[in-house]
Each structure stands twice: as C-alpha cells, then as structure tokens.
C-alpha cells in the first residue's frame, strides 16, 4: 500500500497508508493530520489543503492543471515552486512513499 509522510513545521512527522484512489488530502483528514483542513473535500473551492511536496519528488507527480494553479496563486501560506493542493494528489507508482510538508497556515 502506498504511503504519505506528513512533516510538520516543528519537524514531527507521521507516515500513513493511503488507500487506492484516495487523495493525499483525504488521507490526512481521515487521520486527523494537523494543518490540513481540506474544507471542501477536494472540490477545488477552498485551497485549505495546501502542502509542499518534497522537492525531489515534485517533478515525478502529474503537474497541476489550470484550476489548481489558479487556486495555488491564492493560498494563505507562502507559495513555493513545490506548492500543491493535496486534494489533487495521489500517490502513484513508481513512488511508494510521498513526502509532504505542512505549511504555516491554511486560512
């Protein structure tokens, strides 16, 4: 089963299993990962599921579409080149563990 490792700003981390077809956001919410709100459930309405993807892994993911980019331009925390909305991310092979960093704030 693929996994996601969530790294908090204080360095603490938690690695969880992500079911097939489940977004990184939903996996985080189901497990109560602090700092990922995912208010709209992945409808690209809220931008409260912002994460920084591990820089080396970022390029191996499908790139954000236009809608995600538009919302990324409005995230509440600092936007970086590796910023993504985790509701649009799934852990896909060849990755078996995706590492994401939780931003300072979501709203």
């Amino acid at each position: 089963m693929p996994r996601v490792r969530f790294v908090q700003r204080d360095g603490s981390e938690k690695s969880i299993e992500v079911g097939r077809d489940l977004s990184v956001m939903l996996a985080a919410v189901r497990n109560g990962i602090h700092g990922i709100d995912g208010e709209c459930g992945g409808s690209l309405d809220c931008a409260t599921c912002h994460v920084y993807v591990d820089e080396e892994q970022a390029s191996s993911l499908p790139q954000p579409d236009e809608e995600e980019l538009e919302l990324l331009s409005a995230v509440s925390g600092e936007r970086r080149p590796n910023s993504r909305l985790s509701c649009q991310l799934k852990v896909l092979p060849p990755l078996d563990e995706l590492v994401v960093h939780v931003p300072a704030r979501q709203s």
């Binding site: 079911g19 919410v29 497990n31």
Partner: peptide, 17 residues
C-alpha cells in the same frame, strides 16, 4: 466516487483523539 471514498473520518481518527 465510491461510497468508501466518501468517508471523511475513520476509526483511527476517533481513537487517536
């Protein structure tokens, strides 16, 4: 989306909290 993927919080969440 399947029924299972609608689930927002699971047992581990409630146990953890």
């Amino acid at each position: 989306i399947s029924e299972q993927n609608l689930i927002l919080r699971d047992e581990t969440f409630f146990e953890g909290k």
